Amino acid sequence: MRSSRRHPLLVPALLCALALLAARPTSADGEPGDGPGDGAGEGISAQVARLYRDAEVATQRYEAGRRDAEVQRAQAERYEGLLERERREIAALHEDLGRIARAQYRSGGGLPLTAQIILADTPDQLMRGRQVFSQAQLAVNNAIDKSRRAEARLRADQAKARSAWQALERHNTELTVLKQEIDDKLEQARRQLQGQADVSVAAGSCRGAVRLDQPPVDGTRAWVAPVESYELSAGFGSGGARWAHRHTGQDFAVPIGTPVRAVGAGRVVRVSCGGAFGIEVVVQHPGGYYTQYAHLAAVTVDQGERVLAGQWVGQSGTSGNSTGPHLHFEVRVTPEMGSALDPLPWLAERGVQVR
């Protein structure tokens, strides 16, 4: 019989291995998950979150460029309107100049200087006529020069405005292309993320929490909506062929990968990846209430973890009994289904208006 002393590290090594296995995240059914650091799943989740941020930045840049373009368009139209008005004034001035010229001719102002000398009765008459003519001619010439300078200046301003507008159009086109590229990448990443979620649901085992780089939580708000931007779809108590009785929560229509937030501080009491709700998270809040976040594509918390209001608990998806991407949100008095109440008045009582 061999002595155990020949392997002094065997027992401690086995104990460490057992401890590591026991520490792995589990689903609601007690099956082991993949842990928070498991490569591809976390990579796709992080990629989707990053692409959402990139798309938001690109959209903001696009909107800023569009607003600048509208301002520039209005300025160009003002230039064109001013130019048109100046042209009308110049046309009126030319008409006045024609009348002046005709009047001068009738009064002798248009006669050659030799004829004026011959026809003048006195030298004083000749000088007065020439002085009036010179002053009138000088005023006419000045008015013409002024009008021509103004028209040239306005044409130059119009050209500058048109050039600036064309540059903004090119800029907006570039931003649109950039945004479309991000949207295309995001759509591809969404499909991959949902594909992994479907695999987890089919296996009934969660991959484990993915740790995403999320923005700081606003500590001044005790309660928030479960998603930031959304459209409301199926409401509490509504009927539908996909529900046994009545709809037990409020659906928020959002794209796959949208960050889902804990509506209030609490503790994660369930992370499950099988059944009609697909991938779901249930959070217990002070006061005996529970909130459920279902049909997720990924979870960002582990069972037993404490969360703050606004902290991400997952990414939306269309896992489980779902016809399209959305978040199914419930408020319950127990962690189990069948104890749900209308979540919108419940949120409104806590200062969160959902419309």
Rank of each mutant, 00 (worst) to 15 (best):
I144S: 04
R190T: 03
D145M: 05
A159V: 11
T176P: 00
D198S: 07
R149D: 09
L168N: 07
I182T: 10
Q166E: 14
A167G: 08
R153I: 02
V177Y: 08
A150C: 01
A202G: 12
V177A: 13
E151D: 11
D157N: 10
Q158D: 06
L175W: 07
A197M: 08
D198P: 01
A197G: 08
E151G: 04
Q196P: 00
N141Y: 05
D157G: 00
L178N: 12
D145L: 11
L175G: 01
A150T: 12
D184W: 04
Q180T: 06
T173V: 01
A167Q: 15
R191C: 00
R190A: 13
K185Q: 15
L175Y: 05
R148I: 09
A159Q: 15
K146L: 04
R162L: 11
A203I: 03
A164D: 15
Q188K: 11
S200G: 01
R207Q: 12
W165F: 02
R207I: 00
L186I: 02
A156K: 14
R162W: 03
A150Q: 13
K160Y: 02
N172R: 15
G204P: 01
R155N: 09
Q194C: 03
R149T: 11
Q194K: 11
I182Y: 15
A150K: 12
L175N: 05
R155E: 14
G195L: 09
R153M: 08
L186A: 09
A161Y: 03
Q158Y: 06
S163R: 13
Q166F: 02
R191A: 10
K160C: 00
N142M: 03
Q194V: 05
R155L: 07
A150F: 01
E174W: 02
A156R: 14
R155M: 09
D145H: 08
D198M: 08
R153N: 10
K146V: 02
G204W: 07
G204I: 05
Q166W: 02
Q194R: 08
R153D: 13
N142E: 14
S205G: 03
A189L: 05
K179L: 15
S163E: 14
R149E: 14
L178W: 04
K160G: 01
N172L: 14
A143L: 13
R162N: 10
R191K: 14
C206Q: 10
R162Y: 03
A159W: 10
A143M: 10
R170T: 13
L186G: 00
N141F: 07
R153H: 08
K179F: 01
I144F: 04
D184L: 08
Q196N: 11
R155A: 15
T173H: 02
N141E: 07
A202V: 04
R190K: 12
Q158V: 11
C206Y: 03
A197K: 11
Q158E: 09
Q158H: 07
Q192I: 06
L186S: 05
G204D: 06
L175M: 11
A159L: 11
K185G: 04
K185D: 13
L168G: 04
V140G: 03
D198F: 07
A167K: 12
V140E: 13
A161N: 05
A156P: 00
R153V: 05
A197T: 09
D145W: 07
Q194L: 10
L178A: 12
T173E: 04
R148M: 11
A167R: 14
K146R: 13
D157E: 14
G195I: 06
